[in-house]
Amino acid sequence: MDIRAYIESGVIESWVLGMASAEEAAELERLRVLHPEINQAIDAFEASLERTALAGATQPPVYVKQELFTQLAGEFKQEEARTRVVTMPAGRFAKYIAAAAIILLVISASMNLYFYNRFQSANTAYQALLVEKTSLIATNHDIQVKALDMYQSMQMMSDPSVAKIPMVTVRANENNLATVFWDTRTKDVYLMPNKMPPAPGDKQYQLWAIVDGKPVDAGMMDACTGLCKMKNIPRASAFAITLEKRGGSATPTMDQMYVMGKVG
């Protein structure tokens, strides 16, 4: 068989264009298997036909594709169909849901703000209460200490072996008073400033014990509550208080004596 003549006969084009008879088609399908040149000729004509058709394309209106895909919507692969479903429900219901979600969000946000402000003020009040509680505890502690001091002072004052020596004013037109409590067993001296003018900032009251006619330093009077514990004095005939420079003096300034009292 003359293959070249067969290729140039037009039967290939007739077959590709769908115009060949059944016998022609059967012959061609048998020959193309035996002769690669025929196969190549078929392929070449198909390729140039496709190129020509694409070059001469006329675009259909867009709605054709939309209608086509609507028609076939149920026939596409499942997972792609699912992504379509996700994008579909933009109806009234979805709009209501969106609107409700936004309203709830606004309400939630404003309640957050309200409760945050409430929380802030409650927290501030709580901190203030904490500070107040701490100071109350401190005050309470102070008071307990003072109460204990006063109890101990009362115990001592009512002790029969403790001598009570009132010291009265030695200055004209002043009504000063202080009391020395002297434990006759331990010889400890305690001072109670019953009524004394406040000492100036750079001065301090000093207690003296008069031993054999001479003054002996018995300690400085601090801002103590209740009884102030002074120095241990083994024996004395009298006690006196003078106003001295802060820290005390070796000998009393006689013209600054405020009170004095004799033992016995």
Binding site: A53, G56, T58, Q59, P60, K65, L68, F69
Partner: peptide, 13 residues
Amino acid sequence: SYLYDNYSGALHS
């Protein structure tokens, strides 16, 4: 969709 975009014009013609 790709097939349609590429061949609808030639077939339409």
